[in-house]
Structure formats: structure tokens, C-alpha cells
Amino acid sequence: MARRPEGPPPPPTVQKVRIHYTKRGRLRFSSHRDFQRAFERAIRRGNIPVAFSAGFNPHPKVSYANAAPTGVASEAEYVEIGLAMRCDVKQLAAVLDESLPTGFDVLEVVEAKEGSLADRLEASAWLIEFPGSDPAAVDAAVAAFLAADEVQVQRMTKNGMRHFDARSAVVTLGPVLAGSPDWQVAERAVGAIPAGCAILKAVVRHTTPAVRPDDVIYGLREISGLTPSNPPRVTRLAQGPLDTQTAVIADPLDRDRDVITSTS
């Protein structure tokens, strides 16, 4: 006879919310698993009525989506949680932000509408700093990269060295000016960007295998020999639905907000 957990099943999810948060400052060195632990503890510290799965090892209902790699800062991370009691999203945002370590800052919480959050995360915009690199050399590398049909890169994965194309996933790649809106977003995540630093913005489609910002940097080096003296610092500026005509990434929570405004 199969064993069954004692007691009644846990209360069901009555509300799903989506959370927009950041990975700023030193916390850019956190891994996805580090965030998961911090987040689940913040839920407990904040006494947030998260729903639990049934079974012998109940775990909180949290869906993580497409986290930025370890070492990369982000202004655009998202997570979805199921609640066993309805909550006010503004208060929830304040309590979660208070409970999370500084750097994992909660920017907004919205109630989820139909449709998967993960499906809306079609592309990311990355800001890449090249400290100590000659801007002309960076421009030349970008031109060569964009002119190529294919840029083969390699990355060490759990299953050994993988070779793949980094070019086709890149929608746009170009310079960012000091003081521009993108530059300002990145400074919120990483602090001051050194003067005279060549800066690029890459809009990259989410594909399989994923093309990450370090793959783009690797590709630039492969195609042009661009070798930064310091490791480039990277910030995710945005992720969400991609307008392929304009290469603009929309806010993935827009569609959830629409529902709230139209019903209230």
C-alpha cells in the first residue's frame, strides 16, 4: 500500500503574483540557487502566505524564470509565486523588499493574468562594459560580428565543451553613450561606470542553447581578437516580449496590468 502524508492537504493557491526584482551591486555574484534560498527565506521572514505543494516534502509554490548568470547584474529579473490567501500587491512588494537582502530589490508586484510568464520572456537586453579597451577596436569588433552570418563560440558546460553559433540570436549590437537612458539603468545596478569605458548594448533572443552575454563577448574576441584587459561587467537591462521590427523589448508584466485596469 502506498504511503500517504498525514493530515489534510495544504490550502490551494488562490492568487498568483509576479514579482519584478533586481540583482544589484555585489549580489551580481550570486548564483540562481543563491537567490532561490534567499527568496524562500524572505517569504518566511515576511510571513507571506505562500501556498505549498502537497506530498511528503511540501515546498513553496515558486516559479523562477530565466535568471541572469552568476556575475551578471540585472534590473529585470522575474519570479512568480502562488499564495494561499489573497494579498494586496503593493503591501506584498513592500514586505518582500524589506525581507530580501539589499541588492535583491523588489521593484513591482502584479497579480498574474492568464498566460505563462516564461513564454513572454522572449529576449534580453544586456549592457556590456569594456573597461580599458580602445573604443575604436570595440567598434571594429562589433562591425565584424554583425557582418558575419555565423560566429562559432564554445562554452564549458556540465556535459563538456559545447560549440554553437552566437550570431543568429543577436538582434542588435551597438554602442551606448554615457548619460543615455540605458547607461542610467545600468548604473542603478552596478554603481558608477568608469569614464572613457567602451559600452555596448546587445539585444539577444532567448534560444536553445542559450546565447549568454559572455558568449557574445567570446564571439567578439573570436572574430576580431578583442581582448579586454579587465573582465567586462554585464548588466541585464530588460527582458520580455520582443518587437522584431524595432528590436524593442516590452515590459513582460504589461499584460498583467491591463487586466487589473480593465476590471477595476
Binding site: P11, N47, I48, P49, M85, R86, C87, Q91
Partner: peptide
Amino acid sequence: VVDPTPVLATEASS
């Protein structure tokens, strides 16, 4: 302090 109904809940669960 370990209140089963957190202050931020807007209504009790059914």
C-alpha cells in the same frame, strides 16, 4: 507572532 493570518492578507482563505 506566528499568526496564521498574515497582516498583509486582504481576506481569509476559504
